[in-house]
Write a protein that binds this DNA or RNA. Structure first.
Lengths: 201, 201, 201, 201
DNA sequence: CATGAATGAGGATTCATTCAT
DNA sequence: AATGAATGAATCCTCATTCAT
């Protein structure tokens, strides 16, 4: 049991990765319950027992995909923060870059994103982490008086996260807009608001 | 079969509603696949065949709940539009009222909302309708120069919808904020943006 | 789950009993692991799901059989003790009667005995209880000086239990000797020993 | 296939014996069906195919262990008989010695005994042989008038075998009594019986 | 209006065993 | 002498659904 998945040869590694790849497709398209191991395995050119050579259960492979997504996302966040510290660019550009990277990452990992950000039970937790992260950044800028003092930055973070969530599905994954565009638009909307500055009330 | 659902007797109606109520709870909490008819029926104090007296299948009862949600939401939207036309109040207030009513509706119909807005396959379509609706309103105000001319109002509508989606789950259903508060905050954020107006770059 | 097996109608009860009966045969003949639910159910004229209408699992039905055996055996023991107290007959006769009843019970419940006394994991425990019971009786007689003072009555009880175990398989279940005969022989052997009283060393 | 088991190299022999040793442990503890080749092989530090280098199947290795037990037991019996013939000691001592040797053998080969005497299908046959052996000896002594004439010596042999069976499990393998003690007690019980010789009825 | 009883169809998982190297 | 990789063949179990009453 603990032995599972510790193959050393390259053939086994490849088989495992082939299964993971197809599993990601299946889970992304059909969700957890409607995805059948038999289908995954058949598509990968194996028989059912082979699956259990590499994964302990259906839950296990799903978790592996979720964790992969999560780790990559965390890595992205960390990297982003480091760069941010060094970066001397102006604020909107910096924010846009961060968002753009997220969209880019989602775009490059569509199946994984579907699984980790939408389908899995951990999706909520993952988003919570994202919100936490956003909140911290936003609050920092708020302290620096870049942002309005009267806003609840956690609510703002939730809003932005929700916007990302939606735009990813409706614009990014439908190939209607690219990561950069989406990032720019979000920044534009959230930074300056809808109100026409020329209109006076 | 053609007979199904045409019960007129009050006993049957009550039974059906009891089942619907519990089904909503179960679907909302466990999702479609993990909800078992046996559980619903047991909780409602019936036996399995009784279920099929009122609903053609598991899909059917789920659909019935989704449609109930959808109709109510459409009704809300229509009512809102009618009132809006008559309403002569200033814009932010009017928008906030519309949002508040949505949140209020979600709050009053938590299980139904979970099902129709989050769990069902139609959720996407329902949100699309909501986005369409928002887009129309936003574009109207844009034409009236209340809103900035350079914004893609469909994207804005997606953003707002995503924000509602998230805040409903994280703030409304956790009883952290009430409908009015959430509506006000959204309006505040989207209308005026994050940028501190006093800070000049 | 907790509901399983609580059928009220007589048909269900009969079905359950039919399954139990055949299951006893199968388990007795093939042991736990080699007994297949599919076989039991097929022989009983049902399909697999019906099995789970009455029993939670393969383990569950096996346990039910074991417990039935155990309860019956305990009941026998208790009854035997009560009668013993009233009985004023001479000792050997009383012992023989008790043993005879055990053999009779085993003979009347061959499959159940195979399961509870030989196959199940609880067999050891059941025998331990039997040994405990015998030990108590034997020690009582020892205190009354009917039996030799220098014997470890627990060992004697183990010996008798082992003898019963073996004779049941080799003589009783092969129809070579009947319960009464076996009981008498055991009494004769254990009470008076092998040694020829006429031979002097 | 024809090659199997004919290894001459010392490495192979050692590997085979290592596997046999561990297999004995596993079979003794978990029985035939619950013992997994994968476990045996893992514990022995090999991979599954290596197993089939030495044994044709799971049944085969089990049989090998059973046969080892059986041969050793037969050897013991033969030796015992030879010695017996030469032995001029008095009867009870001789019998006790024989029993003691059996218990000693069981004690020295616990796993093998569990397998051959309790778990295997051949256990019955092996016990039958033991009974046959005992019967012959007992009948010889009966002819010599050392034992009572009115006893069915085969039944006695069954009883003794059952007693051995039980005491081995409950007293010997639990380290509560040693081979010599057990042998003496059995002789004492079976030879002289339970009845208090001083009590007259 | 309601139920006791039963099932069709499928899906995850296990394990002994083998092939190619 | 040994192994990485793979599989055939089962087996338990679940759940929506239906039939006869």
């Amino acid at each position: 049991m603990g032995q599972r998945g510790r193959q050393k040869g390259s053939v086994g590694v490849k088989s495992k990765e082939a299964i993971l790849l197809i599993a990601a497709e299946e889970f992304a398209e059909h969700g957890f319950h409607q995805t059948k191991i038999s289908t995954i395995v058949k598509r990968a050119g194996f028989t059912q027992p082979s699956f259990y050579l590499y994964f302990a259960s259906k839950e296990a492979i799903f978790q592996e995909l979720v964790q992969t997504f999560r780790k990559k996302l965390i890595h992205l966040t960390k990297k982003s923060r480091l760069e941010t510290n060094l970066d001397k660019g102006i604020l909107p550009f910096r924010i846009a870059k961060g968002l753009s990277e997220i969209f880019q990452f989602f775009d490059n990992n569509r199946n994984l994103t579907m699984i980790g950000f939408y389908i899995s039970d951990e999706a909520e937790e993952i988003k919570r982490d994202m919100v936490k992260d956003f909140t911290k950044s936003l609050q920092a800028e708020q302290l620096d008086h870049y942002f309005r003092q009267d806003l609840d930055m956690q609510t703002v973070a939730e809003c932005i996260t929700g916007s990302i969530e939606r735009l990813t599905i409706t614009k990014l994954f439908t190939d209607k807009k690219n990561p950069q565009q989406l990032a720019n638009e979000i920044v534009d909307i959230y930074l300056y608001g809808l109100q026409n500055p020329e209109t006076i009330y």
